[in-house]
């Protein structure tokens, strides 16, 4: 074997190995769905018990979120997160205005040991979204901040749609990684 050919073969082998390693290394963090949720399954909470939670709605100037303290049913572990998201995406009456498109429902929610919450929402959050960077930021951070601002155990949030990872909701905000708490949009 000539030297260049050996070098070529070595190069090709290295590329194949590198691609293989990249595939292994860049796989998403272990899908919570594949393993038991880290948080213990909630036990039945005493009927009617509530927590005070900060939920987020559009500010009057339309450029921000404003936090509103509301009662949310108490639950334990991941169920508390589910209750929070359910309350956050529920339709609201005037004068409140939600940045979550009408019809959006929560399909599933898991929290990893690292504190990454995976929030699986129905496709309405994308298909009924009006678009635009501002509205998309407000929609995404409504969900992200509803969890991270109320549950210290949740460090970051990744939104899934119909069970799948998506690049964006409407072409702007990167949803390919979990997003951490960001209250800069909150008035």
């Amino acid at each position: 074997m000539t030297l260049p050919r050996a070098a070529a073969l070595a190069g090709v082998t290295a590329v194949v190995l590198a691609i293989g390693a990249a595939i292994v290394l860049t796989r998403p963090a272990p899908r919570p769905a594949a393993k038991a949720p880290a948080a213990p399954v909630a036990t039945a909470a005493p009927a009617g018990r509530k927590i005070k939670a900060r939920l987020f709605y559009l500010s009057d100037d339309g450029m921000h979120l404003t936090s509103v303290e509301r009662d949310v049913p108490f639950a334990e572990g991941a169920d508390q997160a589910r209750e929070l998201v359910a309350a956050q995406i529920a339709p609201v009456a005037e004068p409140l205005l939600s940045a979550i498109p009408t019809g959006t429902s929560l399909r599933a929610l898991f929290i990893t040991e690292r504190g990454d919450a995976y929030v699986d929402l129905s496709h309405d959050i994308s298909t009924s979204h009006p678009g635009g960077t501002l509205e998309e930021l407000l929609t995404v951070y409504t969900i992200v901040d509803a969890l991270t601002a109320n549950l210290p155990a949740v460090q970051s949030v990744q939104i899934l749609i119909d069970g799948k990872e998506v690049p964006t909701l409407a072409g702007h905000v990167d949803l390919r990684q979990p997003l951490g708490k960001d209250l800069s949009l909150v008035q």
């Binding site: 559009l58 009057d60 100037d61 450029m63 960077t133 501002l134 509205e135």
Partner: peptide, 11 residues
């Protein structure tokens, strides 16, 4: 290049 939206029409 993009165009924005807001649920508050005056924005």
């Amino acid at each position: 290049l993009h165009l924005n939206t807001s649920r508050r029409a005056p924005v």
